[in-house]
């Protein structure tokens, strides 16, 4: 009798906890947007210098790793595509396949996952450490709202740099594909890019960019939620960091699925 009841209780508790956390995350998102819009008139301005500092940290510094990952992804798509299409004798059609899958799916997704890995963890660790060392309390007693000071600049920085990174990722991934096609099929680079740009429409690329903006919001908010929830010591910070990265990546993949479902209807 006890075991099933305990299971029901567990499910109930977990659901309530999940609901709580989603509520907290939305509150955090709305508060950040509130300070962005009205902070200037409420003694809590979101400073441009803070946004740029974050943008360098989360965006510019992510360029090398995103380039490497996307170049490899483009090359891999070309390999698989040529291998598959060869069976139908249509291997030169691989160009269109790469162009579509990169711009609609892989560029935003790979960018999202790598930025989540870098920044989702860093944000949770930074805010978590600040909570433990009472720096958050110190901000509040100075009269600085921690959400305005720590979360809002990060949110803007990610929402500005993620689309840029995604555009870059598009180009690098296609370059990877193009180079492999040059090596395997002897297809000149300009032919590859001409055909790609002929096939792609604005909405393909825009779809990927909208996704990346949503991913940016997920990373900023999930990282901050986990950081603020740290209660105790170094162990708590470590747990929050891990949890933040895992949740960021899972939610990015789920959001991507939903987005693709809606966009490709």
């Amino acid at each position: 009798m006890r075991a099933p009841l305990a299971a029901v209780e567990w499910v109930g508790r977990q659901t309530a906890k999940f609901g709580n956390e989603v509520g907290y995350a939305s509150a955090l998102l709305f508060e950040s947007l509130y300070w962005l819009l009205l902070g200037h008139w409420r003694n809590q301005p979101v400073r441009v210098s803070a946004v740029f500092k974050e943008a360098v940290e989360v965006g510019v510094r992510a360029i090398p790793i995103v380039c490497i990952a996307c170049f490899a992804t483009g090359t891999m798509l070309a390999m698989q595509g040529i291998h598959t299409l060869k069976q139908f004798g249509a291997d030169s059609q691989v160009v269109v396949g790469i162009a579509y899958s990169v711009s609609r799916e892989f560029a935003p997704l790979i960018t999202g996952i790598f930025v989540a890995g870098r920044s989702g963890s860093a944000v949770a660790a930074r805010i978590g450490t600040m909570t433990v060392s009472q720096e958050i309390d110190a901000l509040r007693v100075i009269g600085v709202n921690p959400v305005r000071y720590l979360v809002a600049p990060l949110l803007v920085a990610l929402m500005l740099t993620m689309p840029c990174l995604t555009v870059l990722a598009n180009l690098v991934a296609m370059l990877g594909g193009a180079l492999y096609c040059l090596a395997a099929l002897g297809m000149p680079l300009e032919v590859f890019f001409d055909r790609s740009f002929a096939a792609l429409t604005t909405s393909d690329v825009l779809g990927g960019i909208y996704k990346s903006i949503a991913f940016a919001m997920l990373i900023a908010i999930i990282g901050a939620v986990n950081g603020f929830q740290v209660k105790s010591g170094a162990e708590g910070v470590g747990r929050a960091t891990t949890r933040s990265v895992v949740l960021c990546i899972v939610s990015i993949i789920l959001a991507d699925m939903l987005f693709t479902g809606f966009l490709s209807r």
Partner: peptide, 10 residues
């Protein structure tokens, strides 16, 4: 306010 561990921004 002066906090226990200082709470300076690191």
């Amino acid at each position: 306010v002066s906090f226990q561990g200082g709470a300076l921004f690191n």
